[in-house]
Design a protein around this nucleic acid. Structure first.
Lengths: 196, 196
DNA sequence: CCTTTCAAGTTTACTGCGTAAACATACCGT
DNA sequence: ACGGTATGTTTACGCAGTAAACTTGAAAGG
């Protein structure tokens, strides 16, 4: 099931690094974080337990590659969501896409945004460009001097909602079940802006 | 260092359960999550590797107890912060306390709010009462029909800020270094309320 | 064409973890 | 005094991450 038999199994595997990342993502989404081990990834790719070390320094390094793929996917989702004509609508759609991504791929989301694997953040280009998509949208909506705060506020709000929802902290009555309900929810939160 | 020699070491340990939780918290804050193992907690409490199983079903069960202690501490911090005279000020102070808690005890914070250990949330009384402190403050500030959204918005905003800051995703220039700067930041975020 | 070489993969081995099962012991009520 | 039960220990197993040494096959140079 995990053997990715696209190429005819060159016995210097062809492209093990990619195969390992793909297997890792599959394990993650089918069986959760605890199932994602170096050895399981190796098994899935049909190689020995030590083979991954030819491509990744250690487990953290594999996780970083998995996270990088996650950032790319998230960025694509955000870019897609950002296409609405009305800029406010586009911002809300970005928020919805962000939360939906987290709900659809919770284990990946946690790896992407959990404790940095190798102590410090490796500054991924994909993650940066995802951030830029949000920031660019806020620029058109908020006056110069409040932009910095607004970007952080928007990201924090959506990220917090995603985390709390994914981890079941919000005793929601299926408010986030459908994308439409979620859109209403996100729009409502943006609008809620606490009295200052 | 970890041997909690308050009582004269009754050799049916006296109070192992508490000792294990204390040791676990110490490990967590001194050496991070990866250092928190059942065996290390047992060592720290001066008992055999299997002794913890007389008090906890498995590792997840110990983690749950650790999280519970975290919820209690957080609730106390929130209650303390909530005492400001001005209700808006009190709300901001709660947010600051929340983020400070996360920054001071990041590993504990991640255990408290990370993926539920045993699949489902065990509904902790301390966590509930922490939530109630926030909700009560919002009730006084927001009209009936927007309260639900406002509570979720406030929690999400602050929780998201805490997560992103703790995990180093916000390339902040020491904005969150001092409590005062943090207070300004939180107040700013509450005020930022995106245009709807 | 044959040999050398080196990256890619394997084998073996070690340590620490979570946990099951069986055993030992000290306190507590009768 | 005694027997039972709660509490802790010993032993053992499988699996994880990873270090070191060995093998192989494909590409490069004479």
């Amino acid at each position: 099931m995990f053997t990715v038999s696209t190429e005819k199994a060159a016995y210097h595997h062809g492209n093990l690094r990619d195969a390992l990342v793909r297997t890792a993502l599959a394990l993650l989404e089918e069986s959760g974080v605890e199932a994602l081990t170096l050895r399981a990834a190796a098994r899935g790719a049909g190689v020995s337990a030590m083979a991954p070390y030819r491509h990744f320094a250690d487990k953290a390094d594999l996780l970083a590659a998995v996270a990088e793929q996650g950032y790319t996917d998230l960025r694509d989702r955000l870019a897609q969501a950002d296409r609405a004509a009305d800029p406010r609508r586009a911002l809300v759609e970005q928020g919805v896409a962000y939360v939906l991504f987290a709900l659809e791929r919770p284990a990946l989301f946690r790896i992407m945004f959990g404790a940095p694997v190798s102590g410090l953040m490796p500054s991924s280009p994909a993650a940066d460009s995802a951030y830029d998509i949000l920031a660019a949208r806020v620029v058109g909506l908020v006056p110069e001097e409040k932009r910095e705060a607004a970007v952080v506020a928007a990201w924090s709000l959506v990220h917090g909602l995603a985390c709390l929802t994914v981890d079941g902290r919000l005793h929601r009555e299926a408010d986030t079940a459908s994308p439409e309900a979620l859109a209403r929810q996100v729009a409502g939160l943006f609008a809620a802006g606490l009295p200052s």
